[in-house]
Design a protein around this nucleic acid. Structure first.
Lengths: 136, 136
DNA sequence: CCGCATCCGGTGCGATACTG
DNA sequence: CAGTATCGCACCGGATGCGG
């Protein structure tokens, strides 16, 4: 029997640098990955509309991000053969599960931004015009 | 009454590119930010130990990441005056709140990596040796 | 016209060396 | 041991081009 051996050996381990879970984490939490997934939680969107909804993302990075998320099975890409071309992006069931864990984080950030803003002000990283000067 | 006007004007809005909440999101979900915060949830750690615990992070990026998280008020930096120098890093109460929203995501990733791995296999991005060839 | 691949210039990362 | 300076390279973002 296998009761003594570690039974959950197929789980990911974020601690180890070469574990593929790191790649998935990178996709989910990359600069644009999280924003794209969160945006797609609300609605199925076309490429252009998605780009406008996310705000600030370049075409290049939107393509790259969507490509990665599609390969991960988090985002579904549907091509509608017509003129002009339509490509609709939506979450897969897997992606919907993931975004369920992403949403609380996003909400927390939006709700608690003032508290962090206060920390920024204490450290003097906020310019007179309200702009934030940070090492990214 | 104020029911019609938006009363929660001081919340962040991740949709708008110039909103500072984007910066906070970036810190929390940057390649190393999330890993550092998750690692610090378990224990207060010194610089070197933290570096070893995270695994794969360069000295430069650990410094940068910690600096940003400290400015955000998520991480506390305590210098112990002695030789050799000791610097201990731990979560602030604010950071502990944030990591509470980060942990479910990390757990989901580790638990569901096999499902994503199956998607990777279907697309043929996994080499014969098990290595993953992805556009990051 | 829309989706996206490609090319190009600047920025930030990673590894190493070095200082206190 | 904790961090900063240096440097080559990868990657990001914007512009351009092309197919559908």
């Amino acid at each position: 029997m296998e009761s003594s051996a570690p039974p959950r050996s197929r789980r990911g381990n974020l601690r180890s640098p070469q574990c593929p879970s790191r790649i998935l984490l990178q996709h989910l939490t990359s600069r644009w990955g999280a924003l794209v997934l969160l945006t797609l939680q609300d609605e199925k969107l076309r490429y252009g509309a998605l780009r406008r909804a996310v705000g600030g993302i370049s075409e290049r990075m939107l393509s790259k991000t969507l490509n990665a998320l599609e390969i991960d099975g988090l985002v579904h890409r549907e091509v509608i053969e017509m003129m002009p071309p339509h490509v609709e992006y939506s979450l897969t069931p897997l992606g919907a599960e993931a975004v369920l864990r992403l949403r609380p984080l996003a909400d927390w950030i939006e709700d608690n931004l003032p508290r962090v803003g206060a920390e920024w002000a204490r450290r003097g990283v906020i310019g007179p015009d309200g702009s934030v000067k940070l090492p990214e």
